[in-house]
Amino acid sequence: MAFLPGDAAVSLVGRNATEEQLKQVREDLGLEQPVWAQYGQWLEGAVRGDLGNSMINRQPVTAQLNGRLAPSMSLIVGATLIATTLGVAIGILGAQRGRIGRVIDSGSIGGLAVPDFWLGLVLIVLFAVHLGWFPPTGYVRWNEGVGPWMRSVALPIATLSVPATAILARQTREAMSTALSKEYVRTLRAAGIGECSILFRHGLRNAAIPVVTVVGLVFIGSLGGTVAVESVFAIPGLGSTAVHATATRDLPLIQGVVVYFTLIVIVVNLLVDLAYRYLDPRLQSATATDGAFANSGAAP
């Protein structure tokens, strides 16, 4: 990695260090070896669950990142829950009437256009600087008090929720409109079924299938959002760690964050898949019944 303009050794000993000092540090960090060898060693460790040590403070990466998991997950899970509740509710409302639908569409475009880190700063100005309702930055662990913990994550969660809610409201509205325009809705109405049952028992049930996918995407989107938002609110999570590691060129630490992100994504996708299987009977029985009744279909 010596060919790269500046490396972790420089960030460690400073720009004014002598050539000997740098060489010493590089040897310690294993930076003198060829890139592929470094990567091979790292991969070997990663398979065993050892993500190596940080180049800056020499601590094991896993130990550092495990401590950062809770703050990040608080933000992401909180944002996803709020966005799902709000977004689905707004989306159902929007599927009902034409004008609300248009308001939601333009609102969601606006919600997506505002950069999250800037929105975070605006919220700090409004609710921390002017109103003083929440602390502007910092994170309180929940075992130090649930109240302060909630106050410390409220603004970052709100920040992450805005684009997530915008996406979910729009997608729910579309999914609901699609579901409610299906032929079976007419059949159910003709059979005398009430609007309430049509909306929730049938409409929402069918709309839930595409919406669950979007909830998964929103969760992963919030995961990416933590990178900027945690930095804005000085939350010691995975995202702010990644930014810090990038700034100091601490490659093992960044790679560690990537591994953690990947694992989280895999788990989320698994959960979405399970939810899908639960919601869509066509997936449950694709192999089970083998279409015992489904022979000789309709004319072309």
Partner: peptide, 17 residues
């Protein structure tokens, strides 16, 4: 598509500051 792009970009910026 499954991994947030921003984190990969951070890795790239770690290599090409």
């Amino acid at each position: 598509q499954s991994i947030p792009a921003i984190i990969i970009i951070l890795v790239v910026l770690g290599v090409f500051p």
